[in-house]
Design a protein around this nucleic acid. Structure first.
Lengths: 186, 186
DNA sequence: TACAGTTGCCAACAAGCGTTGACCAACACT
DNA sequence: AGTGTTGGTCAACGCTTGTTGGCAACTGTA
C-alpha cells in the first residue's frame, strides 16, 4: 500500500472544496481558482496533485452509492427500500447533486453517471425482475424516476418537490419503482 | 404593432443559432461568438439586438408547451395523453432539452423551468385531481417523472432509455402519471 | 441630391480562465 | 552538517470570454 504523505490533508481539502464547487456551480463555473481559494492553497497545487481540471473532476466524482443487499428482502418492499436509500444518499452530501449538474453539460460527467447506474443499479435490477432480458430497460425506468425526483427537488428546486417530506416521497415513488422492477411488461 | 424591419431575418437567425447552441452546449459553453458564427454575423450584432447574453437566453427560451385540453377527455386516459404529448413536444425540437440543460446550471434557467411547469402543468393538474389542495404536489410528482425521463433519454442518453420506443415509454409512464394525478394520497 | 436612420463589420478592451515554471522553506535521511 | 525530496507560493504565459465604440455601407425619404 502507499504510505501516508504529509500532503494528504491538502489533497483532501482540495477534493472537498472541489466537490462543493462542482455541486453548486457545475463544471464550467467551478473554477480551479475558486476551489483553491476555498481549500486555502494556491491554484497551482491543484494542478500538481490532479494534473488538470478533468483529472480533478474525475477524482471528485468518484462515488459509491452503496446499495443494500436486496436479495434477502421481501420482494414486495424493494421499491420503497430503494427510494429510501437513494433519498438518504442524496441528502447526506451533495456529490450526487454535483454529478447530476455536471453530467448535464459535460460528456465525462454524463459517462460517469451512466457508469454508476449501470454498475450499481443494474445488478440489483437483474436479481429481482421477472425476465433478465429486459433488466436494463427496467433499470433505466427506475433511474428516470429517481433522477427526476433528484432533479426537481435538489437541482431545479421546484417548491412542492422541496417541501415534500422523505416519507411522503417514498410513499408516492415506492410503488412506481416497485412496478418498474417487478410488474410484467406492458 | 411594430412594423417589419430589414433586420428581422438576422434576428431570427441569431435566435435559432442560440437555441441550438444553448441546447447542445449549455449556458456557459454556448458562447456569443459561436452563436454569431453559426448565424453568419458579427458577435456585436447579438449585443445590439439582445442587450447581453442573459437577454439572448431569455429570448431564446421563450416557449409554449401547448398542453391539450384535458377536461373533455376520459379521466382514466389522462396519464397516457400527457406522457404522449410531452414526448412529442420533446422530440419535435430541442428547445426543451436546452432549457433543461441550462436550468441545471443557471439560476435564470431554473426559474424559467419552474415557471413553465407552474403555469402550464399546474392548471391541468388542478382540474383533474381529487383534492385541489394537493394539486401542486401532484404536479411536482408528474414533473419529476416526465423530466426524469427527458433527462435520462435526451440529456444523459442512458442507452436503454434511448432505445425504448415512444409507445413503450407511454405504456410504462402513463400509469405512473395517472396515479400521481388521480389516485388518493397515500 | 442631401440627409437621417439602420445594418453590419472591425478592432480593441478588461477580466477571467487553465496552466506552467522558477523559486523558497521545511522536512527526512545519512 | 549537508543533501535530496517534498509542500507550497508567486508571477506570469497565452487564450477566450462578454462587451464596447467607431466607422463604412446601405436604405428610405424629402
Amino acid at each position: 500500500m502507499t504510505t501516508a504523505r504529509r500532503s494528504d490533508a491538502t489533497r483532501a481539502a482540495i477534493l472537498e472544496a472541489a466537490r462543493e464547487r462542482f455541486a453548486s456551480d457545475g463544471y464550467d463555473r467551478a473554477t480551479i481558482r475558486a476551489i483553491a481559494r476555498d481549500a486555502g492553497i494556491d491554484p497551482s497545487m491543484v494542478m500538481r496533485y490532479y494534473g488538470n481540471k478533468e483529472g480533478l473532476f474525475a477524482a471528485a466524482s468518484e462515488i459509491e452509492i452503496g446499495l443494500p443487499e436486496l436479495g434477502s428482502l421481501p420482494a414486495q418492499h424493494i421499491g420503497a427500500v430503494l427510494v429510501t436509500h437513494f433519498l438518504e444518499r442524496w441528502e447526506r452530501d451533495d456529490v450526487l447533486t454535483g454529478l447530476l449538474r455536471v453530467g448535464v453539460t459535460n460528456t465525462a460527467g454524463a459517462e460517469r453517471m451512466q457508469a454508476i447506474f449501470a454498475q450499481q443499479l443494474g445488478p440489483v435490477t437483474r436479481g429481482v425482475c421477472p425476465d433478465p432480458a429486459d433488466a436494463p430497460r427496467r433499470a433505466a425506468l427506475v433511474a428516470s424516476q429517481i433522477l427526476g425526483m433528484a432533479l426537481t427537488r435538489y437541482v431545479l428546486r421546484i417548491p412542492p418537490a422541496v417541501e415534500m417530506s422523505p416519507e411522503e416521497i417514498v410513499a408516492w415513488l415506492g410503488p412506481t419503482v416497485q412496478r418498474y422492477l417487478t410488474a410484467e411488461a406492458p
